[in-house]
Design a binder for these strands. Structure first.
Length: 574
DNA sequence: GCCGTTTTCGGCCCGACTGTTTTCAGTCG
């Protein structure tokens, strides 16, 4: 037995697909590898079982050849075909594909003609002015590649949702001052509320596209213009984020909005469906075989015209939403308004900036009916974790505030470290005084998956733990989560009726939305928590709601959609 | 490399912009 898991197989298939593109194989062959990888991604069944029972080949998209290759890799941890492919086209070529403006064909040519294998070698060749010697490569291409490398090295091409959203909003505000725009909206992964964003897409409808494009490319936020056309222009903002603006005719708006919201996978699946219906779909319309357009009213009308319920943008990831929409079986997604209260807030007792009272007042003003204060526990010395006597002092203060009855209930909580041995950070007599105990891992990240899973599982089995905080500890774009078996964690949480946090901080958004749907099916209750350290942090709740929506959650799946009394009842220990 | 109310062979989703081209390939979404 090797320790290959599904993620390893997906990575391998994608790598093979890309190397085949670089090699110049049939695009349909490489696509077969990408399709298989995407298929496995949506699969919740255990890979081991599937392979042992020889049911892999029953999946639509996996034939004889892929079945054999996946099985070989799963059993031995090695795929001979891939090893020989790597001898021909080294793995390091894949990194070059991340440079904007460089695709598989160019990588292939550069490798065959110049032996360029890395981003660094490519940069050097550009500086040496050697690229222009190649047919099909000119002065401008070389400059574009050099700019692309600069961009890639600076930011690796991805941004936090919150950063990208801020830039897009600024541009929308600027364009809204024009008089000639009919409709204007954010599209793309930003509209789908992905946790990180490659670029921001904005869609406008206007009868005067040139005026709109001129305004877009001359705004104060522009640091560089990448391209400028009648229907599409792209710029880099001061933060280095690429923003694409598309301008279309007003009558094309619903079709274009759907198209440019994506995801690519959702749209491919949708077009397959549309094709089977004898229709054709693109950003300009929905067409019958004779070429006449099917008129629709809005994006919802477009989905209706192809026999589907309206699919909210957050769900458009080809994770089963099309099938659910065809069966009129889409969930009624949670909204910001469903959230009744805030859990997971730090104050100046530990590493927060504000007092209990200040945080509570702001939460009240934001319309919430309760707030649960959860400062760090005593072992978190780096964050000023609370010693038992400080806990008692905070409880007194909370009791006093609650007696004033100023329009919001304050719960006593703690974000207790889950210590390396899996225990919580206070003796029982302190733990039992909290209304809510969030348990989080803040130390010893380097444990093996087995040990880390055991550590967290032990905490989940502790009767004083209410909520498992940021379950992987990841920091988006900067720190990988610790290795942990989330399947096991979710099973234990379901069994022990423990709540799992959706940390709404835009730096975390942990747990990952891709796991939420599964957790929901397992009957797990989640809680959207801002992990706020100041007043502004309370407004991060909206990011968590977006992630919950991506994970198909409804208000009944969320602890903090309950009222204050129900929460206390829910969190009461036997 | 996969698949079949169009098919066991010949298809496989669709279009804009750029650059290097005299009609198109590559990249991107």
């Amino acid at each position: 037995m090797s320790d290959v898991d599904k993620g390893d197989i997906i990575v391998l298939l994608n790598k093979i697909g890309k190397l085949l593109e670089i090699k110049g194989e049939s695009p349909f062959k490489s696509r077969a590898y990408f399709n298989a990888a995407a298929l496995l991604e949506t699969l919740s069944e255990d890979m081991g079982t599937l392979i042992e029972e020889d049911r892999l080949k029953d999946l639509k998209g996996i034939g004889n050849a892929l079945n054999k290759k996946i099985t070989e890799f799963y059993r031995t941890g090695r795929l001979e075909y891939y090893e020989s492919l790597k001898k021909e086209y080294p793995e390091s070529l894949l990194e070059i594909l991340n440079v904007p403006g460089v695709g598989p064909k160019k990588v292939g040519t550069l490798y065959k003609q110049f032996g360029i294998k890395t981003v660094g070698e490519l940069e050097y060749a550009c500086i040496e002015n050697r690229l222009t010697e190649l047919p099909g490569f000119g002065e401008k291409t070389q400059k574009k590649i050099l700019d692309g490398i600069k961009q890639y090295k600076k930011y690796q091409g991805r941004y936090l949702y919150s950063d990208a959203y801020g830039q897009a909003e600024m541009i929308i505000d600027h364009l809204n001052t024009l008089g000639c725009i009919d409709k204007l909206e954010i599209a793309g992964s930003l509209r789908r509320k992905k946790e990180t964003i490659g670029d921001a897409d904005i869609l406008a409808s206007s009868d005067k596209p040139n005026e709109v494009m001129d305004a877009f490319t001359t705004g104060k936020y522009v640091s560089d213009i990448i391209e400028k056309g009648d229907t599409k222009s792209s710029i880099y903002t001061g933060l280095g984020i690429q923003v694409d603006l598309r301008v279309i005719k007003p009558e094309e708006y619903p079709y274009a909005l759907q198209h440019f919201t994506g995801s690519k996978e959702h749209n491919v699946a949708l077009r397959h469906r549309v094709k089977r219906m004898g229709l054709k779909m693109n950003e300009y319309g929905l067409f019958k075989a004779d070429g006449t357009n099917v008129p629709v009213s809005g994006e919802a009308g477009l989905y209706r015209a192809i026999g589907l319920e309206y699919i909210p943008p957050e769900m458009r990831e080809d994770m089963g939403e099309i099938e659910a929409a065809a069966d009129n079986n889409l969930p009624k997604l949670v909204t910001d308004k469903d959230i009744r209260g805030i859990i997971h807030v730090h104050t100046n007792y530990s590493d927060g900036k504000c007092s209990v009272e200040e945080m509570a007042y702001r939460a009240r003003d934001l319309g919430y009916s309760y707030i649960c204060i959860t400062d760090h526990s005593q072992s978190a010395f780096y964050a000023g974790g609370l010693k038992p006597d400080e806990v008692l002092r905070q409880w007194e203060e909370i009791d006093k505030l609650n007696n004033k009855d100023f329009g919001i209930r304050i719960f006593k909580g703690i974000e207790s470290d889950i210590l390396p041995d899996g225990s919580l950070d206070y003796p029982e007599e302190i733990l039992k005084g909290f209304d809510i105990v969030i348990g989080s891992v803040h130390s010893n990240f380097g444990m093996t998956e087995k040990d880390m899973t055991a550590r967290v599982v032990k905490a989940i089995n502790n009767k004083y733990l209410t909520i498992l905080g940021h379950p992987t500890g990841r920091l988006l774009l900067s720190r990988e989560g610790y290795s942990i078996d989330m399947q096991e964690v979710m099973e234990q949480a379901a069994k022990n009726k423990k709540i799992i946090e959706i940390n709404a901080s835009p730096y975390r958004l942990d747990m990952d939305w891709r796991l939420l749907k599964k957790g929901k099916e397992m009957g797990i209750l989640f809680s959207i928590c801002p992990d706020a350290h100041n007043l502004e942090g309370l407004e991060d709740m909206k990011y968590g709601v977006g992630i919950a929506r991506k994970g198909w959650l409804e208000k009944d799946n969320l602890l903090n959609c309950m009222d204050a009394d129900s929460i206390l009842k829910k969190c009461k220990r036997e």
